[in-house]
């Protein structure tokens, strides 16, 4: 009997490894930015054409940066949750409108002038928010996706929890689920709120 124990043990180790492998989502690539200062940027604000926003404006607050776009299907799944969360006044949410025009495969953005693209971005993003509700303190326009690259965005939606000092503390890849909100984001945000 004893001679079977070694292969059996090896087999069980293999099963454990395979089970762990099966339960991990390969599309969730852990972000190296967690624990690092949120990359700086300066982008135009959706609702106020003459204003711009930079992450430094949120210094002293715990806040969420949510990457969205009107062409993003999964954003629709997550959006009601964000709207409800914003109504409770949980945390300020800043929207990063990501490649609103260029990300939409149906539009040939290369044919648009910069001004036309900006106008179309504002129109599409604004219409989407009035249709689905606006949970954002404000939304900024990342038309070419440059800021998205700095934040390591590789799909929409993604959400970053940023602390009072401007350090990224958590990244949600894909839509925020009620579980992720209750179990991860909110407890961490409460803890961060007590930090000075």
């Amino acid at each position: 009997m004893k001679r079977f124990l070694i292969p059996l043990g090896l087999f069980l180790v293999l099963v454990v490894f395979l089970a762990i492998g099966l339960n991990r989502d390969p599309h969730e690539v852990p972000s190296p930015l967690v624990g690092k200062p949120a990359p700086d940027f300066k982008l135009g604000v959706l609702a106020a054409p003459d204003k711009s926003f930079t992450p430094a404006d949120m210094r002293g607050q715990v806040w969420l940066l949510n990457v969205w776009a009107s062409w993003c299907v999964s954003c629709r799944a997550e959006h009601p949750l964000l709207v409800a969360f914003a109504k409770q006044g949980g945390l300020p949410i800043v929207g990063l409108n990501y490649k609103e025009v260029r990300g939409d495969g149906g539009i040939d953005a290369k044919k648009l002038s910069a001004d036309d693209e900006l106008a179309l971005t504002r129109q599409r993003a604004g219409a989407w928010l009035s249709q689905h509700g606006n949970p954002y303190t404000l939304s900024v326009l990342d038309m070419d996706g440059r800021v998205g690259i700095d934040y390591g965005v590789y799909g929409v939606p993604e959400t970053y929890l940023i602390d009072k000092k401007g350090v990224i503390r958590f990244k949600q890849i894909g839509p925020i689920t009620p579980e992720a909100l209750e179990k991860k984001i909110l407890p961490l945000a409460r803890q961060l709120a007590t930090e000075s």
Binding site: H27, V73, S74, G103, V156
Partner: peptide
């Protein structure tokens, strides 16, 4: 959960 950009793999 499928995310929006992932569909472009199939498209490509």
């Amino acid at each position: 959960m499928t995310r929006s950009r992932l569909t472009s793999c199939a498209a490509s």
